[in-house]
Computed example of a mutant assay.
Amino acid sequence: MKVGLYFGTFNPIHVGHLIVANHLAEHSDLDQIWMVVTPHNPHKKKSTLLDDHHRLQMVHLATEDYSSIKPSDIEFKLPQPNYTVNTLVHLLEKYPMHEFSLIMGEDNLNSLHKWKNHEVILENHDIYVYPRINSAVADEALIASPKIHRIEAPIIELSSTFIRNGIKEGKNIKPLLSPKVWEYIDHNLFYKK
C-alpha cells in the first residue's frame, strides 16, 4: 500500500488540511493519507500547542467521514523532538509492506535542505508537493529530482494561526473548520486566551 504522510501540529486541523489530503487521496497514486499529528515540531515553540490528545482528537473528528484519510499518533511514541527521518525509519520497521511518501507545501520543500538527514529522505521516499502562493522557487536540482511530484492541488492560503487568532478575537471562523472540530473547540473553550 502507498501511504502519503501529511505531518503537522494540526493546532487545529482546518478545511485547508482536509482539501489537500482529500485531493491527494482522490487524484494521486496514494492509497491512503495519514495525518501524522506531531507532538513537537523542532521549528515551533511548544508553548503554543494544545495537548497532544486534543489535537489528535480533532484530527479523528475531522477525518472520520473520509475512508482514505487516517489520523496517526505514531510520533507520540517516539523520542522528542521528532525528526521526520527517524519517524520514517520507525514506520518502515513497523509496516514493512507499505511504501511511505511525504506530503508538503512548497514552503517546506524550500527548507528541506535544513532537515535532519534530508538526503536520506529524498533518496528513499517520494515527496508530493502542493502549491503555495507566497513561496520562493525551490532549488532547480531539487525540483528536477524524480522523487519530487508537484501536484495541481487547489491553493489554500489558510493557517491554524489565523484560526487561533480569529477565535481569540471573537470572530466567526466556523466555515474554516469541520463542524465537529468547531464544536470540540467551542465546547472546550480552546484558543480563547
Score class of each variant (00 low, 15 high):
V120K: 13
T84Y: 13
I103P: 05
I33R: 09
A138L: 00
P175D: 01
I121W: 05
H113V: 05
V89S: 13
E140M: 05
S135Q: 00
P39M: 12
M97Y: 12
P154K: 04
V181H: 02
V85S: 15
E152Q: 10
I167F: 08
I74L: 15
G105I: 03
I103Y: 09
L112K: 05
N41I: 03
M35V: 07
N165K: 15
N117D: 14
G4R: 13
L50K: 12
G16K: 08
V59G: 05
I103D: 08
D29C: 13
E99Q: 05
K114H: 02
K180P: 01
K94H: 10
I148L: 02
V137H: 00
Y191E: 13
V85Q: 14
T161V: 03
P96L: 05
D51C: 02
H90S: 09
Q57C: 10
L88S: 13
N117L: 12
D29F: 13
P12D: 06
H125V: 04
S68F: 12
N134P: 02
H90A: 11
K44E: 12
D107C: 01
K180L: 12
G170N: 05
E106H: 04
V59W: 10
L50Q: 13
L24C: 10
L18A: 13
H17A: 08
D65H: 14
L122N: 06
N165C: 11
I163M: 07
I19W: 07
K70F: 10
N165H: 14
Y95R: 14
K116C: 01
V181T: 04
L142P: 00
H98R: 12
A21K: 12
T38S: 14
Y66A: 14
H27E: 03
A144F: 00
K46R: 05
D52S: 04
Y66F: 15
E26M: 05
H149W: 02
S135E: 00
F10G: 07
M58V: 09
Y66I: 14
A62E: 09
N124Q: 11
Y128S: 09
G166W: 08
E123H: 09
F190S: 05
I19H: 14
A141C: 01
E75W: 13
A144V: 00
P175Y: 01
I163A: 05
F100D: 14
M97W: 10
R132E: 01
L102N: 10
I185V: 07
E152N: 12
E183D: 12
E169V: 02
V37W: 03
I163E: 04
H23V: 03
E93F: 11
S160K: 00
V129W: 01
I185R: 02
I121Y: 03
N22W: 09
A25Q: 07
P12R: 09
N22C: 10
E75T: 15
L177I: 02
M104H: 06
W182Y: 13
N117Y: 08
T161G: 06
I133H: 04
D139M: 03
I143G: 00
K70D: 04
S145D: 00
N108E: 06
V3C: 15
I13C: 03
W34A: 11
L112I: 10
D107P: 00
I13V: 15
L88H: 14
G166H: 07
P96A: 08
